[in-house]
């Protein structure tokens, strides 16, 4: 059969075998001014290390732009460019297209170069979702869109985004005397949406850098597979989630172990639950109650037991009622309407 999609060669990026075998070189270094305990900064560092020196990184507006790339003290060792808040997908597309045509026309050396565009949950799940979606349909252009999700507009003082969990206290949803729960929207399922909606996208994954090796190897796989890819990273945020910065790592583990944040990858259309999530699904370990995760964070300090129960029931639904647990919210069965109240 004819080949309709010409994907340019990518770099060979074998998985890192262990933490001890990671390269020592850093491509995201000093010069940034992120908060103590910032997991997103760790994601940037791991992402750059996983991608290596032959990379171009584009950053849309958000914490990882404002705090990371101060004039005269850029922390990026690889070429980096700011893109607008909603532009991560389209800027990656343009960059990748430029490399492709310039190499074809012999204007630059023909060699595989990684193109990564990162965005926060505001830039990705809210403003830039259309452009990311479009980019994932452009199968000929190699790029990775990485959404670092700290679950709020953390750089502008913690306003809720489409990716903020239900009920969280943000500066746009502070509990008050009349309304305890101001934020009544459930978190957007970005990775599932990207995987389900873009059949030509060869790789979608969820990661959490509390599991660093797993996260880095997902990034390497996304870059090596070719075409546009998407990774959704859950990044605990001491400022936005309101916990002691030394707990960042533990917070990520709790998100995974409570089943709130399922780890999975969709590689060439094949879904695989990964890491601890795979063990939870296989019944090897039990999910930790969401209470243990929620109550460690000040943003849920106003929750009553009913609120926690509601949150738990929604997470239970995700695991027990979704057609593909934790990934796609189609239900297995039609649920009967509740009986009318007398």
């Amino acid at each position: 059969m004819a080949t309709y999609i010409q994907i340019d060669p990518t770099q060979k990026l074998e998985p890192f075998k262990s933490v001890k075998k990671l390269p020592l070189e850093e491509y995201f270094t000093s010069g940034h001014r992120t908060c103590q305990g910032c997991e997103s900064a760790l994601v940037m560092k791991m992402m750059a290390k996983a991608a290596g020196p032959r990379s171009i990184i584009l950053g849309s507006t958000g914490c990882m732009y404002v705090a990371n790339t101060t004039y005269y003290s850029t922390s990026w060792v690889v070429p980096w460019m700011h893109t607008q808040l909603g532009s991560s997908g389209s800027a990656a597309l343009g960059t990748s297209a430029a490399l492709k045509v310039l190499m074809r026309k012999g204007k630059i050396k023909n060699e595989p170069i990684n193109v990564i565009a990162f965005c926060g949950d505001g830039g990705g799940a809210d403003m830039g979702v259309g452009a990311i979606s479009a980019t994932l349909t452009h199968a000929e252009y190699n790029s990775l869109i990485l959404m670092y999700d700290n679950e709020s507009y953390a750089n502008t003082d913690i306003q809720l985004s489409g990716s903020t969990p239900w009920g969280a206290n943000t500066t746009f949803s502070s509990p008050g005397k009349m309304k305890r729960i101001m934020h009544r929207r459930w978190k957007k399922n970005m990775a599932g949406m990207m995987a389900a909606g873009h059949p030509e996208c060869k790789y979608v994954a969820t990661i959490c850098m509390s599991y660093g090796l797993h996260g880095m190897n997902s990034i390497r796989k996304a870059l090596a597979i070719g075409g546009p890819t998407f990774i959704h990273s859950l990044d605990p945020c001491p400022k936005g989630w309101d916990y002691d910065p030394y707990l960042s790592h533990e917070m990520g583990e709790l998100a995974v172990n409570s089943g709130v944040w399922p780890l999975y990858e969709v590689e060439n259309g094949v879904l695989r639950l990964t890491g601890r999530t795979e063990q939870i699904a296989a019944g090897k370990i039990r999910r930790v109650p969401v209470r243990d995760y929620l109550l460690k964070q000040g943003r849920f300090a106003h929750f009553t037991n009913d609120d926690i129960d509601y949150f738990q029931s929604k997470v239970d639904d995700m695991w027990e009622k979704w057609l593909i647990p934790g990934v796609i919210p189609f239900r297995k069965d039609v649920e009967a309407d509740p009986p009318p109240a007398n």
Binding site: Y65, T69, T70, Y71, W76, P79, W80, M81, H82
Partner: peptide, 8 residues
Amino acid sequence: PVSHGPQI
């Protein structure tokens, strides 16, 4: 490598 459009 260069950084374009840094925060100032």
